[in-house]
Design a protein around this nucleic acid. Sequence first.
DNA 1: GTGTTTGCAAAGTGTTTGCAATTTA
DNA 2: TAAATTGCAAACACTTTGCAAACAC
Lengths: 141, 141
Amino acid sequence: MLRMATFCEEIQHLKAAGLRPTRQRLSLARLLFAEGDRHVTAEDLYQEARGAGIQVSLATIYNTLHQFTAAGLLREVPVDTGQSYFDTNTTHHHHFFEPEQGVVIDIPGEAVELNELPTPPAGYDIDRVEVIVRLRRAARP
Amino acid sequence: MLRMATFCEEIQHLKAAGLRPTRQRLSLARLLFAEGDRHVTAEDLYQEARGAGIQVSLATIYNTLHQFTAAGLLREVPVDTGQSYFDTNTTHHHHFFEPEQGVVIDIPGEAVELNELPTPPAGYDIDRVEVIVRLRRAARP
DNA sequence: GTGTTTGCAAAGTGTTTGCAATTTA
DNA sequence: TAAATTGCAAACACTTTGCAAACAC
């Protein structure tokens, strides 16, 4: 989604999310959303931004990732490495996770279906269901 | 499982796992396994141990939780709060997670079934599938 | 006795925060 | 110009580590 976004489209993207299109947010949005679905950590994005000559601080990376997530432009993936992973794909889908490299790969929503959802405890609703398929290196065949 | 474990049973439990039954490990094992299924963070267990008058350091709590996990006595639950959660139930099951309180609740393995598993990327096998059902407070009825 | 385990304090990692300077509308 | 945003550095929370003393076998 948002492949080939132009500058103006990205501005609309942010404004629609209620975020001022500042230089940093625009630059980061273009890195994140220009190239299709991605999974990044704060550090990944920081390195990528600096590599691209974008002047931005790590604190702003964190702020921006959380603001984008709150605005529904990103989703956080619950992997239990120390770091937070953010996913540019906010549609219904799940994840493979390879712990050694820390690689996250999308699984299309249709590829995993639950037969029935468990009844939540009284007083609670189901917010969403996350399926993480943990991978390990295949045994020699 | 391991309800009502006696001292000697706990020693066997550790020895079977290849761990020397030291005073600290025994005390922690009894806290963890005497009372049925539990979900604890390192800090939880540390406070509980100190409250019970068990002399143990936080570093040892961390060591022990990881050793127990490596030995298959515990499982880590992939929730993305900053902390690590350890589960004394190592059988096939899944979890509810309530982010505001940080509460983890077991879902029996049979209550959630996947219709089919996605094919892992080449060179990888599926290690295990984790289903986290995120809860939010119910809207006023 | 020998190798393992423990505890402490220090270091490490990832993330958040306070606040002055800057930018946006 | 008023309000929002940024960057820096310091603070933070959680976890790991190095090493000497204590312990298990």
